[in-house]
Design a protein around this nucleic acid. Sequence first.
DNA 1: CGTCGGGTTGAGTCCATTCAACTTCGGTGG
DNA 2: CCACCGAAGTTGAATGGACTCAACCCGACG
Lengths: 239, 239
Amino acid sequence: MLESLYLNLGQHDALSKNEKALLADAMSVEKYFVTGEDIVVEGSRPTVSTLIVDGLAARYKVLEDGGRQFTSLQVAGDFVDLHAFLLKTMDHGIMALSPCHVVVAEHSKLRAITEQAPHLTRLLWLDTLVDGAIHREWIVAMGRRSKTSHLAHLICELFVRLQVVKKTQDMSFHLPLSQAELADVLGLSVVHMNRVIGTLRRMNVINWVNHTITILDWPRLVGIAEFDPTYLSMSNEPR
Amino acid sequence: MLESLYLNLGQHDALSKNEKALLADAMSVEKYFVTGEDIVVEGSRPTVSTLIVDGLAARYKVLEDGGRQFTSLQVAGDFVDLHAFLLKTMDHGIMALSPCHVVVAEHSKLRAITEQAPHLTRLLWLDTLVDGAIHREWIVAMGRRSKTSHLAHLICELFVRLQVVKKTQDMSFHLPLSQAELADVLGLSVVHMNRVIGTLRRMNVINWVNHTITILDWPRLVGIAEFDPTYLSMSNEPR
DNA sequence: CGTCGGGTTGAGTCCATTCAACTTCGGTGG
DNA sequence: CCACCGAAGTTGAATGGACTCAACCCGACG
């Protein structure tokens, strides 16, 4: 059940048997969420952190006028709210975008890890740092990339992240997002979102049917996106 | 010299004498940077992390077309590249936006802290988590707020952050940013940046002369920004 | 067979950009 | 002392990108 987590943390540095055991001991209770359900609600003070075993989730905020913005997409092997372990109060909600199978870790167990397992602690810390790096890349995309480039970048990022946890098939992957939800990721209107997708399609770099994206021309997509995966810190080295 | 750091970390939870001593031992070498100079260059692999004692710095990325986007603003008491301790390779640059007085910590010393001082480790981790929370708020601002609201939000955030480290005077603070640089924060053109500033000025909620911002009507500014400081995690509690 | 959510397309409006000119101000050298 | 210069700020006009409103299509499902 924790395979994705091991793949995710283990891509950055080797995980020992003992560390895997510590994680397995910390993560016991399984839960299931349906599409659209809140995994964590804004303003709450969680006492557990949630790991996605399978499914897609997203962090989001809603403004007074009803506008919604997703601030991250979380896939299998991602902790959706590891940051709440120390931040304490949720300043945003986390929603299941597909049926989600998760497993939770008591904060007391995470605390014990920080007291006794420094290397594993650094790997968990690193996991939240990669989160931050992704946020920064999104800020760049929102601020200075064209909308087409932004979308291309997102597709590149998701493909690479899903590859790490073995959730891609050849050059395609499943993305159970409606165009309205995607618009709330990129920060634009549904109509315009549709047109941006249309341009990438017409360029023959991707195919997008049935919530499945197939990358037809990876080098060209990377070019449009100016995608450089450095920020995902995928090199395996001592941390 | 580390007063701002103590104020910054200490706002979230009490720092013990011993922890302050550990930090003081880790942070020894002082450096100075002039305006516009790179404190850390993109692609490098730092062996130290840098704390701002005084001045303003920013993380940034540059795209192929020359477009630049700042992804964060760092003030006194902020670590500009604590994340590089574990991320290893810089995926972005960090630039001094004013003359910067900094002090650096060897990563070996930080590593020792993670091995021996779990609570201090958690506070350092928390510092990077707040960074991430700020990133998320910026994403929301870029995606779903009006430009005026975005600017108002930034001003609120900076005012509150600077207040923590005692760098405000009454309702005003120093912000040594040109309108062109500010445009690269909000992700818009210089001309439009100027007009957005103009509207906030004409609304009589702020005064902005000589790189000094004075907030004339805090409640109204907060209203325009829909500013809720929860994401800054300013409550003092066990972490 | 009708309905409903999601996707697609067109038309008109508004917002943000570019290009360009002009001002203001501090600094510097004649 | 002031004339000049360059960097930063401000303003106008025209272009183009993104939004809203609205209609229509389509496949899933009751």
